[in-house]
Amino acid sequence: MRKDIMSDATARADYIDGVKALKATPADDPRYSRYDWYVLWHAATMMTMTPPGNSAGRNAAHSGPAFLPWHRYYLKRFEAEIAQALGKPDFALPYWNWVADGALGETDQGNAPIWGLDAMGGSGSPVASGPFAYDPTDPDTWVVRIELRPSGLFLVERGLNRMIQQAGIRRLPNTGSVARTLLRGDYDAAPWDRSSLPSFRNELEGWRGEGMHNRVHGFVGGDMGFGHSPNDPIFFLHHCNVDRIWAFWQQRNGAATYLPLDSAPADLMRHRVSDPLYTLPGDPGASGAVISDMFADPSASYDSLSDLADLAVVV
């Protein structure tokens, strides 16, 4: 069961232990870890424009319909690998309920318990406190290895950067924006990119209105503002909450309300309902998963959707 990370000390400890265990597990290419492999996968997906050269900036997992199913697949793979690394088959990814934190005052949002020493720690370049603080003298310290730069993907060695509320975005999405997004009835709409309207996907991704998912990346700042954003372990907790919101929406609207269908034109490659989800060349766990494989059984994974149900009322 996926739980609110601040509601359960065990879920919190398991998550921190789990990401550190993946950081300590070499990938097939021993220059980086299995954790870093996920960072690489995300960055490579970001670089894969669908179709190549499109003017909307749509890639295999962002600014298009596949945004939600691709990230669901990514989280499932990550969750399963942590469960294995911890030897805890029941391990479930926790989520950061930024919907709840968004209802706090501005100062309290930056000081919320998620940023405490016993949770994700605080800001810094590099981060100076909490479980992901950088200490070059400690061989087990949290080290960033993968960067997406103008000239491609690079192997680096440095601490994690995080700049909560310092990158011009001082507030999380407000509950009014969340409520409006939840009430959207259409999964997505032409032209299937960041200008789509009406589109639940596009509003949740954050290209319309106040900005939902995108705004959370900007609120955290530092590495979270780049294609290598999964370098910050808050990434997976953030996206688990995005997934929870989609699960709630699916429960309301029917699990298989996805668009576009397979009959859509070829330039929607990677975004039609039976298209394969992008993974890295040589992915050792590639399963040939397609978008529609991500529709089943959404809401049963989460401890609670009731806070979303409370918001999703027409007033």
């Binding site: 970001m46 670089m47 424009m49 050269g53 499109n54 003017s55 909307a56 900036g57 890639n59 962002h62 600014s63 997406l148 730069r149 103008p150 000239s151 032209p191 990119d193 960041r194 200008s195 954050g206 290209w207 998912h213 995108n214 990346h217 900007g218 503002g225 780049f226 294609g227 954003s229």
Partner: peptide, 23 residues
């Protein structure tokens, strides 16, 4: 001359995978 991986949308806004959460 630099390759900054950007595209200009129909609305004239610009996006780049180097700063992927912003238009």
């Amino acid at each position: 001359a630099r390759q900054l991986h950007f595209s200009v949308g129909q609305d004239g806004k610009v996006t780049s995978h180097l700063r992927p959460y912003v238009a």
